[in-house]
Amino acid sequence: MKIPSFFAKILLFGEYGIIENAKGLTIPFDFYKGSLKFDEANFQSKSHKDIVKYAEYLEQNMPEEFDFLSLWGDLKKGMYFDSDIPQGYGVGSSGALVAAVYDRYAVHRIDKNQLNKESISKLKEKFGHMESYFHGRSSGIDPLICYLNIPLLINSKEDIDTISIPKGNGKGAVFLINSGAPGETGPMVQIFFEKLKQEGFRKTLHKEFNKYNNACIDAFVKGKKEPLFQNLKNLSTWALVNLKPMIPAKIISAWENGIKTNDYYLKLCGSGGGGYVLGFTKDFEKAQEMLSDFELETVYRF
Rank of each mutant, 00 (worst) to 15 (best):
L268C: 02
D161F: 01
A215W: 06
A254K: 09
N257I: 00
M188P: 12
S253G: 13
F193S: 04
K203R: 12
L196C: 09
K171V: 03
K207T: 12
K211N: 12
F209L: 02
A249E: 14
G170N: 07
F192D: 05
F280W: 03
I154A: 00
K203G: 10
G272V: 01
L235W: 04
F193T: 01
S253F: 08
V174A: 06
L235C: 06
L266P: 12
E199K: 15
G270H: 01
Y212P: 10
A287P: 08
S156E: 00
K267M: 07
E184G: 05
Q288V: 10
Q198Y: 04
P187V: 00
T237N: 11
E226G: 06
N213E: 00
N262S: 15
C269R: 00
F201N: 10
C269N: 07
I247M: 09
L291T: 01
L291P: 09
I252S: 04
T281G: 06
N257G: 07
V174C: 11
G170K: 15
Q230N: 14
E285R: 15
F209I: 00
W238E: 03
I251M: 13
A254F: 03
G168P: 12
I259W: 04
A239P: 07
F220E: 01
A239V: 12
D263Y: 12
E208T: 05
I191P: 07
G270F: 03
F175A: 12
L228I: 01
D263E: 15
A219R: 03
R202L: 09
N214Q: 15
A219P: 10
E208Q: 07
T237Y: 13
P248I: 03
A254L: 08
D218N: 13
S253V: 13
P187D: 06
I177C: 05
F220Q: 05
P187C: 02
I259L: 12
I165L: 01
T185E: 05
I177A: 03
L291V: 04
I160E: 02
G186M: 08
I160M: 02
N210Y: 15
R202P: 07
L240H: 08
G183A: 06
L268S: 05
E226L: 13
Y212G: 05
Q190N: 11
D283C: 13
P182N: 02
S253N: 15
G258S: 11
K211P: 05
T237M: 10
K224H: 14
N155Q: 14
K222L: 02
Y264F: 09
N210L: 07
A249F: 13
N178V: 06
K195H: 10
A287L: 06
D218L: 08
